[in-house]
Amino acid sequence: MNAIEFNHVNKSFGSFAIEDLNLTVPTGTICGLVGENGAGKSTSIKLLLNALRPDSGTIQVLGMDTCDPAYVAVKNDIGVVLDDAWLPETITAKQVGSIMADTYINWDSALYESYLTRFSLPRDKKFKDFSRGMRMKLSIAVALSHDPKLLVLDEATAGLDPIVRDEVVELFNEFTREETHSILISSHILSDLEKLCDYIAFIHEGRLLFCEEKDRLLEEYAIFVGTTEQADSLLPEAIVHREGNGLGGVRAMVRRSQVPATLTLEKPTMEDIILNLVKGAKRS
C-alpha cells in the first residue's frame, strides 16, 4: 500500500494552479518535496489534508480518499507539522497537551511530556511568548505524540538552530525505522533532505517535474568544472545548467551518462542538483 497517492490532481486559484499532479509515496519511505516559494508545495500538502478540495483528480492517504467523510478518522494516524505552529497565542504547552488528549484517540500524554522535557519547552508559558524554534518544537512534539503512521512536514525544521535541527532530523529518521511509517517533508534546507529522504519530488510552477530516488539523482547528475571550450564541446542535452565559475571558466551540472569519460566530474550535493534543476527549468 502507498502512504500517499495523488492521481491527476488539479487545483486552480486563478493566477496559480496545480496541474495534473501525480505523486506516490510508498509506505515506509521518506519523500522530500522541493521547489521554489510559491511552487505549490504547501498547496499540495493542504490538498492531502483536505484543507483544500481538488478541482479534479483524487488523493488517497493511508488507503483512504481524502474527500471521503471517513478520512477524518484517518487523521488520527497522521502527524502534521506546518510551516508555523498555528496554535492559539494565549494557551500554554500544558493546555495544548490537554486539548490534544481529547483530539487524538492514541494520544500518549507521557510521551508528550517526555518531548517537552527533551526540547526544554516550558509547560506554563503562553504560546505567544515562544520563539519560532520553540513553536516548531512544540508542533513536532504534538505530531509525534499520537503514534502516527504518516508524518507530513511542511518546513518543519525551519527556524531551528543546527544542533536541535540535527536532533529533530534524527527523530524523523528513528520514526521511519518502523516499516509502516512514512514521511512527506517539504523543506528549503536541502541538506536535511539529503540526510533524510529516499525520494525527491520536484515541483515547479504547480507541476511535478520529477519524483526520483535520491541515490539515482546523485548518480545521474554530476558537476563539471572546466574551460568554456570544454563546456561548448558537450552535447546540449548533457548540460542541465551552466554558469561562469568566477575564474573565467564554466561550472555546469551535467548528466553523467552523456559526458565523455575523459572529463573529470565532481560529485554533486542535493543542493547542487536542486538549484541547477530550478535554474535549468527557468531557462527553458
Binding site: L82, A85, W86, L87, Y104
Partner: peptide, 14 residues
Amino acid sequence: RSHWDQMAAAMPYS
C-alpha cells in the same frame, strides 16, 4: 488571528 483553521484541518476534527 492564530490561523487555527490550518491546524484544525490537519487534525481529526470534522
